[in-house]
Computed example of a mutant assay.
Amino acid sequence: MAEAAGSPLIRVSGLTVRYGAVTALDHVDLAITPGMFLAVLGPNGSGKTTLFRCLLGLAEYEGRVESRARRIGYVPQIKNFDRSFPGRSVEVVISGIVGAWPGPLALRRHRERACAALAEVGADAFADRPLHALSGGQLQRVYLARALVHGPDLLMLDEPAAGVDRAGEADLYECLEGYQARNPELAVAMITHDWEVARHHADTSLLLDHSVLAFGPSAEVLTEDTLRRAFGHVGHHHDLGVTS
């Protein structure tokens, strides 16, 4: 894991989002610095996706979101992806370059660049494979290549392991950490429900339940006490081996 350094890429101050009488986020403060691997955790409906939408400029909010990131890559969840879609891996990546599904001219012009991005995440062997023939882990790598093709300063992932088996999940995190090691200024922000994954892979964690419950080094944030405050229980299969 890369060590966070430098002035923030993203600084969030007093971020508040209301939907009528419902407050989705309440005066959230945080900073994302170059090299940071941030895990965002919280119960369902706690505002995690709303926070990401604000960082991506897709939601209205009160407060401030200051960004000096020139490029942001985003990897959505794949569990609801329609596998009958008639496309190939390389076309998905090229769509991230041209902002639309590529025609023959775009395929010729951008194929080399797209294949290089697929190679970065170990997916070049199935560049021409139909999407319906990919496993969940392979498909997630394709979307990761699409997000990385522009060389972003910040990579945002929404539950990247959803719909991926355990072997694919391990490969995905190994791929992420390898890419960040080769690009140490890259910041990664990831929504996850798995605090074991967060504690193992993310140097920094944000525990969110509409407002910030805890934010800081993962080993300090993801304690049994703070997890009980957020989730109400810590199951035996998620035992962190720490005491509050």
Rank of each mutant, 00 (worst) to 15 (best):
P86W: 12
V98S: 02
Y143C: 12
R88G: 11
V121F: 11
D124Q: 12
L148C: 06
E60Q: 11
G136C: 15
Q77V: 12
R88K: 14
V121C: 03
I97R: 04
L131Q: 05
L118Q: 14
L131E: 10
E60D: 09
R83G: 06
Y143W: 13
Y143H: 07
L55V: 03
R111N: 02
I97L: 13
I97A: 06
L134K: 04
A117Y: 08
A69E: 01
A127L: 02
A119L: 09
D124C: 14
V142S: 13
A145Q: 00
R109A: 14
E120Y: 07
D128M: 11
P76M: 00
L58Q: 13
A114Q: 15
V98N: 01
P102Y: 03
G122V: 08
C115A: 10
W101Y: 04
R53Y: 02
A125C: 09
L105A: 14
Q77G: 08
G99P: 10
P102N: 14
R129M: 06
A123F: 12
D82T: 02
L58C: 14
P104Q: 13
V98M: 04
L58K: 03
R70A: 13
I78C: 06
A59L: 13
A69V: 06
L56S: 00
R129L: 03
P76L: 00
L58P: 13
R70P: 11
G87C: 03
R88E: 11
A127D: 00
V75N: 03
D124R: 13
Q138A: 09
S67W: 10
R111D: 00
D128E: 11
I94E: 04
R113M: 01
G103N: 07
D124G: 10
A69S: 10
G99M: 07
R113A: 07
R108Q: 13
G137H: 06
E120S: 07
R129S: 08
A133I: 11
E91V: 06
F126S: 08
S89I: 07
R113W: 02
Y74V: 06
A106P: 12
H132S: 12
R146L: 05
F81M: 12
R83I: 11
D82M: 05
L118T: 11
G73E: 02
A59Y: 12
G122H: 07
S67M: 07
R68H: 14
H132E: 05
Q140A: 15
G136I: 15
Q140S: 07
R83F: 03
E112I: 08
